[in-house]
Design a protein around this nucleic acid. Structure first.
Length: 310
DNA sequence: ATGATAACCTGGGGGC
DNA sequence: TGCCCCCAGGTTATCA
């Protein structure tokens, strides 16, 4: 659920409240929260103590906090998973039920950084930077593609890669090695805006069509970011524990049986890859079902049985 | 190699 | 009241 806009909201909070502070102490309260740190919890805590943080960065749904000392080329990598929160809390505030990691600082600001995560899909870890990378990109996420709000996002390469894939459009949007930062919510929203069905084969997209889709991905993420992201409940909050307001602006996601804001047709929910896809059956027509018959001998009009299947 | 799927995890909510 | 099952879903390991 935390997708690019929500993670960017958190990054800005870290930049304001955490960057430039020196770590005094780290408590790992749940080992799973540092499972991506190969050295283990003790090593994670020991290597953070005494370090001063630099500017928080983000790629897609990943955040990292470099250290501003020169032993740099190392940073704390964070992923929120489905329910992770990074909170800046008064040091005396009661522990959250799902508090996993606490970071205390060596200053008198009175606040500490907390990683809270109910479902424990998220976590923190320490990684070296990709050698020579100007932003200090952690090597653990070198396979993550640039996100659509990154000025260096290569639009031409995206179109080429999309056309080369032998898959369907929503799968491709969720593939973080192709384009990062898009999750189930913004994928459905961008597809609705583009009038594209989630099962449309990527190979059938013309370049103008995929350019339009990319434009809608950017638009919906920018709009969400402007109002602090999407929150359905208290699980998704900024570093001060506040929720965003984009939920009320969603056009497709979570709107099963509600009227499409374009044509009034009831929005449908379909099971899809162990989750759900929301779409308007009128605006987003399903692709023609695949046929085993070679194109040359396929009848001009598909049999009724094939069309009824959709 | 590529693409598709299961597993990881917890709590809220609905049905009975 | 309580029990069971389903649902939310990003990422990775594993399978075909």
């Amino acid at each position: 659920m935390p997708e690019l806009p929500e993670v960017e909201v958190v990054r800005r909070g870290l930049e304001r409240w955490v960057s430039g502070r020196t770590v005094a102490d780290v408590q790992v309260l749940h080992p799973r929260a540092v499972r991506r740190h190969l050295g283990g919890a003790e090593d994670f805590a020991a290597r953070l103590r005494g370090r001063r943080t630099g500017t928080a960065r983000r790629r897609g749904k990943y955040l990292w906090l470099p250290f501003d000392d020169d032993t740099a080329a190392e940073s704390v990598l964070a992923h929120l998973g489905m329910s992770g929160q990074l909170l800046v809390q008064p040091a005396g505030a009661p522990d959250e039920k799902h508090l996993r990691i606490r970071v205390r600082f060596a200053d008198d600001a009175g606040t500490e950084l907390r990683f809270v995560d109910q479902r424990t899909f998220g976590g923190l870890s320490l990684h070296d930077a990709v050698p020579g990378d100007p932003e200090g990109l952690p090597d653990a996420i070198a396979h993550i593609a640039r996100d659509p709000l990154d000025p260096a996002f290569d639009e031409a390469a995206f179109h080429t890669a999309l056309r080369r894939r032998r898959t369907t459009i929503k799968r491709a949007l969720l593939d973080q090695s192709l384009i990062s930062g898009v999750g189930n919510i913004y994928a459905d929203e961008a597809l609705w805006r583009s009038r594209l069905h989630y099962d449309r084969p990527t190979a059938t997209l013309t370049r103008p069509r995929s350019a339009e889709l990319l434009g809608h991905v950017r638009e919906v993420m920018t709009a969400a970011l402007a109002v602090g992201g999407t929150s359905f409940d208290s699980l998704y909050v900024n570093v001060n524990g506040e929720s965003g307001y984009f939920e009320r602006s969603l056009d497709a996601y979570g709107r099963e049986n509600e009227p499409c804001r374009r044509c009034g047709t009831a929005v449908r929910r379909r099971p899809w890859m162990n989750r759900s896809s929301y779409f308007c059956p009128r605006c987003q027509r399903p692709p023609r079902p695949a046929t085993a018959t070679p194109p040359a001998s396929r009848p001009a009009v598909p049999p009724l049985s094939a069309r009824a299947a959709s």
